[in-house]
């Protein structure tokens, strides 16, 4: 530690790091919400995930939406991004599938092959 200036710079850096961490989530669920997804019931899927998160009392999981993934016949589709792991895409995710994926993949890290679309692709 040399002077006040350096201390200030250090303080700013630590503050930024802290913000980054606070805004970070362990798991991000992205639900495809194009016209195709919505018509196939993607809103029910998203709400099922929100309910499951609420029930499990987890605060490090977020749900967001994206547009059409480009495989409309297999909607509702979701991407799951688990921290430090490659993203996984699921297809035909109805509420039942959502429960299975939440309990196995998100809580326990086991991929549910039944609804698997692809692994490791963006």
């Amino acid at each position: 530690m040399k002077n006040l200036e350096e201390l200030k710079i250090m303080r700013e850096r630590v503050k930024k790091d802290l913000q980054l961490r606070a805004g970070k989530h362990r798991v991000k669920i992205v639900v495809g919400m194009g016209s195709c997804g919505i018509a196939a019931g993607a809103r029910e899927t998203m709400n099922e995930f929100l309910n499951l998160i609420e029930k499990s009392n987890k605060t490090d999981i977020i749900v967001t939406a994206s547009g059409c993934f480009g495989f409309c016949a297999q909607e509702p589709m979701i991407h799951i991004y688990v921290e430090e792991k490659k993203p996984v895409t699921y297809r035909n995710v109805d509420t039942e599938a959502a429960q299975e994926i939440f309990n196995n993949h998100i809580l326990n890290g086991k991929i549910v092959e039944k609804y698997l679309f692809s692994k490791g692709k963006e």
Binding site: V31, R43, M46, V63, T64, A65
Partner: peptide
């Protein structure tokens, strides 16, 4: 009403 909560979550 559900649509509006969905919007709230889908696009923060």
């Amino acid at each position: 009403p559900q649509t509006f909560t969905d919007i709230y979550f889908a696009w923060p």
